[in-house]
Design a protein around this nucleic acid. Structure first.
Lengths: 148, 148
DNA sequence: AGTAAATAGTTTGATATCAAATCAAATGGG
DNA sequence: CCCATTTGATTTGATATCAAACTATTTACT
């Protein structure tokens, strides 16, 4: 009975832990960005910039897919990044429906900062986690992800 | 080089996986609630109701802490639940700053539905996950959580 | 007893987000 | 060629969310 209760609570706790870890990660990242003088930007903006580090120019649809946010959300997010001077928007010449987003010089300057923050975050995240535990974690999470 | 690249991608993938799993869980829960005719309610409302299943009456501050949302958010969330007839609000007689939130009969009727949804979700979540894997997962996630 | 400080909850303002509706452009079929 | 359909992005409307400011009440200190 008691052990059954604990078992139930523990299985539910994993989902709660996942939510809480994600919150902590996000909070950490926003705080670190603040420390580097990057304000007014949340993790979603960061995701866009990060995607642009990997590929110099993306369509709005690319971004929407990459960061898994609605197209209309991406419009607002990107427009803010334009206002802050981190990215530009440009229509394709052939197909004028398509808008390309690219980093400005100012936006590109964020790369080392983002990489540093990312490293710090990962170091903290994986502190005291062995290679075996990482592999196990990845393995199980992949299975869970594919359950839905 | 290549293996190093993969290693980096994999460590980052865990965080991405965590986000994606959480999205899937939330989406599943909202969809299931819809199937049971429960609309206009998101997971945060559900968290409040869930907390009230466990304790018949909570203060706004209790709720804020329980679901880890800002007090002002809780005000809006609870007010909506009041409007939908699931909960009531009542001021404490001794200390009139304190507002107690309790389930209505209508709200209490949600219990079997919520439990059924919860069970379905957990069954799916843990499909093909062994007891050992669960324990391992819980163990590692707890460590990660305490790293921040 | 009086007052400053702390507390519980709400109001207000701003923002990220989703989804439907809309607009403009491109595609495909008759 | 014409028009219905599809596509890419934006606009619009609604909502959840955070945080600062605010209101009312309670506590703690002198």
């Amino acid at each position: 009975m008691t052990s059954n209760y604990n078992s139930i609570m523990e299985t539910r706790d994993i989902i709660s832990l996942i939510s809480k870890i994600r919150e902590k990660v996000n909070r950490f990242i926003v705080a670190e960005m603040g420390k580097h003088g990057i304000d007014g930007i949340g993790t979603s903006h960061g995701d866009i910039i990060y995607a642009l580090f990997k590929k110099p120019r993306l369509t709005m649809a690319d971004i929407s897919k990459s960061i898994r946010k609605d197209k209309s959300t991406v419009t607002a997010l990107v427009d803010k990044l334009v206002r802050l001077g981190y990215v530009t928007k440009e229509r394709d010449r052939e197909d004028t429906r398509i808008v390309y987003v690219a980093l400005t010089d100012k936006g590109s300057e964020l790369k080392p900062i983002f990489e540093s923050i990312s490293k710090e975050m990962l170091d903290l995240f994986y502190l005291n986690i062995s290679e075996k535990e990482k592999e196990e974690l990845l393995h199980v999470l992949k299975k869970i992800y594919s359950n839905f």
